[in-house]
Write a protein that binds this DNA or RNA. Structure first.
Ligand SMILES: [Mn+2]
Ligand SMILES: [Mn+2]
Ligand SMILES: [Zn+2]
Ligand SMILES: [Zn+2]
Lengths: 145, 145
DNA sequence: TCAATAGTTTAGAATTATTATAATGTATAT
DNA sequence: ATATACATTATAATAATTCTAAACTATTGA
């Protein structure tokens, strides 16, 4: 979903009723310049901050998964103990900061196109994604000890 | 852990008591030619098949995590709903078959070295891993409908 | 040898994330 | 407006994982 704010229309287009919960979630997720990464808990916090009425946790789960099915968000697997989602739904690469548990997009131009020289018979490639795990450089830290 | 079977010695080397549960888990995990991928449930099944005595699920969890800490296994994140482990502890690339939920190693020679053209200040790169999601090719299937 | 000790296993309880249920509420079409 | 299908909600249920505390065992060294 792009810059404009016609979330009611956007929801209708894909056959979803524009309930106030869904519209609010659209605002929180898509009414911003840049895409971003979030967990369900992040989202619940963001919504309850911006909303007068409360929203049920189940609704957030449901709606995120509905949005996932419609291609508005996608799930990112970096940690089997927590679900991360991304409003950038294209196949793309990430840094994962193991100190802060933050995901950061890697610009396509910062990694050369990846060529897989072998394939699996009868299978097609759905996506190719790189995960770069980073952590604070202890070499640097040592200087200050 | 390599080809030989001196798991008692291997465990002692890292300060772990070679209990029969741990030795059995070593046999199941490391007494084989090739590395492999497993879930906790896979492992419990394998152990209970090969063992006369039962092993507690908590022990399997504990021991896998102890082995992870000691660098004998590593956790692979492909699916935030399930924990996969790998007896190949080096940074390496995978196919993930979305039909069968099978992980398959990609040989280093089948992907060119990945060069990250940008870095994050104060952070060092711990690993660079590629995940290639594959699924059955519906183009092929159509022929037989 | 054989206790003393530290470390380990275990069953079961607790916790956490997530999903299901079923009653209530709401959007939409007529 | 009304009927209907769809959505939301609180709450219960489930599943994966971790915690607890009691029972057990490997190791140490007298
Ligand atoms: Mn999910
Ligand atoms: Mn883990
Ligand atoms: Zn992203
Ligand atoms: Zn592997």
């Amino acid at each position: 979903m792009p810059k404009n704010c016609n979330f009611i229309g956007k929801l209708r287009e894909v056959g979803l009723r524009p309930t106030k919960q869904r519209v609010k979630m659209c605002e929180v997720l898509f009414n911003r310049e840049k895409t971003f990464h979030f967990t369900i808990n992040d989202l619940v916090k963001m919504i309850s901050e911006q909303m007068n009425q409360k929203i049920s946790l189940a609704t957030v789960y449901n709606t995120v998964h509905v949005f996932e099915k419609k291609g508005y968000v996608k799930e990112i697997s970096i940690d089997s103990h927590k679900s991360y989602f991304d409003t950038n739904t294209s196949a793309h690469h990430h840094f994962f900061d193991e100190d802060t548990h933050q995901l950061i997009d890697i610009d396509k131009k910062d990694i050369d196109k990846i060529n897989i020289k072998k394939n699996i018979p009868g299978k097609k490639i759905n996506s190719i994604e790189v995960l770069v795990r980073v952590a604070s450089d202890n070499q640097n830290q040592k200087k200050f000890n």
